[in-house]
Design a protein around this nucleic acid. Structure first.
Lengths: 257, 257
DNA sequence: TCAAAAGTGTTAAACGTACACCCATGA
DNA sequence: TCATGGGTGTACGTTTAACACTTTTGA
């Protein structure tokens, strides 16, 4: 059986080349067309879903491991990725029985036991333009796709808590730091930017006040061009002033909340 | 040699009963008399200092491990403890050579090697009334004492970064949540509370505005008594309204920043 | 009686919020 | 020509920041 062989190889690889006891979990938020989604994986031969994750190689920085896992699941790199919390409760696997879930993989009991022990997991969240991503399942999962943020089912392990905390952190982050650099095209309109903010915050904002505030931070440059082809009045195009944007990131200017 | 024997036992205990690859580091801020201090340990037979830390037992929640380590170093429990970041760079031990530092312990080379490999470390910060703490060194260290926040020397590993980030996080936390519950005596004056805030923020605040704001949050109860015995006008005593205090913690009301 | 700390209130500036009108565009 | 989205400015209310005088107390 090819799958069993491959799985065995993977497990050997995990045991030898990766740090034990520590894992990484990713809350990958997808933004597109005014919708906020989360990338979930369906566990092999079950109807249970969970977050994508990864492990850290012995000679690899933890953040690099998170980026690598993100790339493996979405095909994307160069995106916004942020550590938000580390989860270390003993019972964090017992929401559904981890042992039962893992047994679906068809592993020998010894491997199962090791897998079923509690890991400390470092949570990262990412924000990607989901039209550009290519969701790819891994060897433990059958399916990988986007779920609407309002319709997340009961997930395996403590992954519902992770999503809740990640979203809370992202929203708070929005009050301290600019966002949008790797999420919007190089040139974008003010309504585009506003929609991004509204999608993340889950609430609508006043057009005029939003524009005033954004321009006030000095991270935007208005171009001469306008975006034509739309059905209505052509909006101006903007681009981020990279220098001021980076400065705002460093300084943690207070933004809209 | 009694110390070598004890050390051997400790290392065996660490190997068998604790999670590998993950450690905990504690930034314990001490508050007293308008001073902000950090608890540091001096590494065995060296003049190098570092943060206290700990490890997680197999059947122990991570947060419980942090509390336990805190108790072991200070004798205190029931205090403010908060996870702030997890550190996982490969080179986080190379600031000073970890191998050289560890060799001062007089361990056999095999143990040394294992000890010298990179751990992922979860950083917690705590805030304690330092007059009540009893700083206690562990088996790896000769000395345990408070250092003024402005006079921290170059520390082992990435511990200077940890302190910087912990302080930044603590200051931000102050804008979202009330603080003081386990730091001030049951009854305290408004100037006491203000001094706590000023010490943490490292800046002075306007007396009148501070009082207005604090009272506005409804977490304080003014008592009939005044604090007598001081050399000047007797200030009122306050106590926290536990219920509202807890509520403010949960709701993350926006506080003074 | 004086110096030092604590109690209290007012005013101006900044900021956030609410809101309305005109313009451009393709259907 | 009209419906829709986009551009712009003003006025009000709230919040924050600055600031001064009086009271109490022990030295």
């Amino acid at each position: 059986m090819e799958y069993q062989k491959e799985l065995k190889r993977l497990i050997f690889d995990l045991k030898t080349n990766y740090l034990p006891s520590v894992s990484i979990d990713l809350v990958i938020f997808g933004f597109h067309d005014g919708q906020l989604k989360v990338l979930l994986l369906r566990w092999k031969t079950t109807d249970k879903w969970c977050l994508p994750g990864g492990r850290i190689r012995h000679e690899e920085n933890m953040e690099a491991a998170a980026y690598r896992s993100l790339r493996e699941r979405t095909g994307l790199s160069e995106i916004f990725l942020q550590q938000f919390h580390t989860f270390g409760d003993v019972d964090r696997y017992t929401h559904f029985s981890r042992h039962d879930t893992l047994s679906k993989l068809g592993l020998p009991e010894e491997d199962l036991k090791e897998f079923a022990s509690r890991d400390v997991s470092v949570g990262y969240y990412a924000l990607v333009e989901f039209a550009g991503a290519t969701p790819t399942p891994d060897l433990f999962t059958d399916e990988c796709c986007w779920w609407d943020i309002d319709q997340i089912p009961l997930l395996l392990f403590d992954h519902n808590d992770m999503i809740t905390l990640a979203l809370k952190t992202l929203r708070r982050q929005l009050s301290y730091q600019p966002i949008g650099y790797n999420l919007l095209p190089d040139k974008f309109t003010m309504p585009d930017l506003q929609q991004l903010y509204e999608t993340i915050l889950g609430q609508s904002l006043d057009r005029r006040n939003f524009q005033k505030r954004m321009l006030g931070y000095g991270i935007l440059e208005r171009l001469e061009e306008r975006k034509t082809g739309g059905a209505h009045k052509a909006p101006y195009l903007y681009r981020f002033n990279k220098e001021n944007y980076e400065k705002a990131l460093r300084d943690e200017i207070l933004f809209v909340g």
